[in-house]
Write a protein that binds this DNA or RNA. Structure first.
Length: 592
RNA sequence: GCGUCUGUAGCUCAGUGGAUAGAGCAAUGGCCUCCGGAGCCAUGUGCGGAGGUUCGAUUCCUCUCAGACGCACCA
């Protein structure tokens, strides 16, 4: 259904036209002076130059016309004020009508603007055989939210975890495994026949092997050289190492699925750098044939500089001087794979902002070589660093990188303690609820910030039940659930003919007007890849709801028609809140 | 050195070419015959600095200061 701002604009357009002004000036915005009006139109001031008239006269023409037009019932006020603002208030009956139709439609009347578009979302970025740590957190949380928003808007969203599964870490693990278990058949050059189906290690061992190998390679040059050699052999298809690699993948992926699952993050594709390998020889050949790739200092590079660059950007290296492919090559290969399989109409990559240059390079090569159509948007949604309270990158107390599991355990533990302080619920329920609230606290704490900026992770603040936090939003939903349950106990379910009535109080009208922003906020959040806009919306919605709640005795209302209207309104409020937190990637418990 | 991004209240963060720049936390003072007080109401402080464009700039431009990040064979 139409956004309420557009409804208002359409209602006043005839007034502009009839008074001799272009109706493109009939643009409505939310009022920035709520004490004066609900909506405003600044078009008269913009039109003043064009028509060489005083803004106030134009505003008066428009306001007068509307006041006498057939659309006048839509407004309770439309007035021209100095220097040329048109101040607008909506008739409460009109707002109620809008909400009633909203309530009846699927997705509350949100238009599915994305129908027919396929979008690849590249997020996650986990490395196989390395545990997830807080550095992976933002990509997963933000990406999941963007994916859900797009899907809700009707886009065919394809989320790809894009694993780091082809790098030096594989060689490191192979050689460390050789040192630990030299008798394994993978290291016996004379071994014939199949290799065991069972992996030669558990996830626990694997998690120990990689850090050990990584540390060893920094001290032991010989070991590092062996790892590089092993990586090279793996990448060139050496059978025994491919067999180990398969084991590493199987063991690690099961663990990654579990960990991402605990975060409420799922992927449609579990592809990785290894899947791009088959495209690389052809890719390099093609870039050479097209005359884009040339030798420079022994490496093969593609120029990506363009008119208008404020600085000459370095060329994109697609083959190292030792002949090996690298990051950019792999990402280009992945693009070829995606074009072949999906022909996406848009790409969204969600990574750390330090990779900005890399993606500029990759995108330009992809466009220059014609792998991706010129008009296909390739978006790099970059996010900033998650810092500790000291403003420096978040670390464990010992100064190491904190694992995601540990972070979540800490948050859930802290929430659990808070629940147990005030309530006597069963331990089992408290644990479960703590998990739900903890995830909301973590995700909301992250998503409520602008993605591109660094932000400070402050657990005490994020898990607080007060202020602009996830738990506060959940609390509001739980409170509404409680009222609805009590109502249905005594009065039963709402009949289908119950209508939301025109607002009886200012707090009620504020709640109703806030709900109408829903149609504006969700498409904007996706278009601008800005989940924090959804957060801001539901925080404000929770706030106006709580003010309404505090000033209105819903269950004691004696007028049954009015009471049913209240119930329907708060049910709609709950529905909108739940829809939005689902888009952010978390859910509300029944009690907390 | 060059480039990109950031700088808003004591702290954490929103925000817009337009009227009086908003929230939360923290501080202080109120509100329970009341559907969950994990709430509501009230009080105080600010656009890093200097120019410019504009009728109007916190927003756009230039310079400057401070911080983060990046600058070809890591991913």
């Amino acid at each position: 259904m139409k956004k309420i701002l557009d409804c208002i604009a359409d209602a006043i357009k005839p007034a502009f036209t009839a008074s001799g002004y272009d109706d493109s000036f009939a643009k409505i915005t939310l009022s920035n002076r709520p004490d004066l009006c609900e909506y405003q139109c600044n078009g008269a001031m913009a039109a003043a130059k064009t028509y060489k008239k005083k803004p106030i006269d134009i505003a008066k023409d428009v306001a007068d016309y509307v006041s006498h037009s057939q659309n006048k019932d839509m407004f309770s006020e439309i007035t021209a004020v100095m220097p040329g603002f048109i101040n607008i208030r909506l008739n409460p009956e009109y707002v109620a009508k809008y909400l009633n139709s909203m309530e009846q439609e699927p997705k509350y009347g949100l238009e599915e603007s994305g129908k027919g578009e396929t979008v690849i979302v590249d997020y996650g970025g986990a490395n196989v055989a390395k545990p997830l740590h807080v550095g992976h957190l933002r990509s997963a949380i933000i990406g999941e939210s963007i994916k859900r928003m797009g899907r809700f808007l009707g886009y065919d969203m394809i989320g790809d975890v894009h694993l780091g599964d082809w790098g030096l870490q594989m060689g490191l693990i192979i050689e460390e495994l050789r040192d630990r278990k030299p008798d394994l058949p993978y290291f016996d050059e004379d071994h014939r026949g199949a290799y065991p189906a069972e992996p030669p290690f558990t996830i626990g061992e694997l998690e120990d092997i990689y850090p050990a190998a990584s540390a060893k390679s920094k001290e032991d040059e010989g070991f590092k050289a062996r790892a590089q050699e092993a990586t090279f052999r793996l990448q060139n298809g050496y059978g025994p190492f491919r067999a180990i690699w398969r084991h590493i993948m199987d063991v690690s992926l099961a663990d990654l699925r579990k960990n991402y699952g605990n975060l409420g993050v799922t992927f449609d594709l579990w592809k990785g750098e290894s899947d791009a390998q088959e495209y690389i020889p052809g890719l390099i050949e093609d870039l050479q044939e097209k005359g884009l790739a040339y030798e420079s200092q022994g490496a093969l590079v593609v120029d990506i500089a363009q008119e208008g660059d404020s600085k000459e950007l370095p060329p994109c290296i697609i083959r190292k001087s030792d002949g090996a492919a690298l990051y950019a090559t792999s990402d280009l290969g992945t693009i070829l794979d995606r074009e072949k399989a999906y022909e996406p109409s848009r790409y969204i990559y969600i990574t750390d902002k330090r990779q900005e240059l890399h993606f500029i390079q990759v995108f330009r090569v992809a466009k220059k070589a014609g792998y991706v159509k010129e008009d296909t948007p390739m978006v790099h949604l970059m996010f900033g660093t998650m810092n500790g309270k000291d403003g420096k990158p978040f670390k464990t107390r010992e100064g190491g990188v904190m694992r995601l599991e540990e972070l979540m355990a800490q948050i859930n533990g802290a929430v659990y303690e808070r629940i147990m302080e005030n309530r006597t619920v069963s331990d089992e329920e408290a644990r479960k609820t703590a998990g739900i609230i903890g995830l909301a606290a973590l995700k909301y704490g992250d998503l409520s910030n602008q993605a591109s900026k660094d932000y400070i992770f402050d657990m005490d603040r994020f898990i607080s039940f007060e202020g602009n936090t996830g738990p506060y939003i959940l609390y509001t939903i739980v409170r509404i659930k409680s009222i609805l349950a009590k109502y249905s106990e005594t009065a039963g379910e709402l009949g289908p003919d119950v209508k939301i009535l025109g607002a009886a109080s200012e707090t009620e009208k504020n709640l109703m007007l806030q709900i109408t922003k829903y149609h504006e906020v969700i498409p904007a959040g996706f278009k601008e890849t800005a989940p924090h806009k959804i957060c801001q919306f539901i925080y404000e919605l929770s706030d106006v709801f709580n003010k309404f709640y505090n000033s209105t005795m819903i269950l004691k209302e004696e007028n049954k028609e009015r009471q049913a209207s209240y119930i329907k309104l708060i049910r709609l409020t709950k529905g909108v809140l739940e829809t939005c937190i689902d888009l952010l990637g978390f859910e509300a418990p029944d009690r907390m």
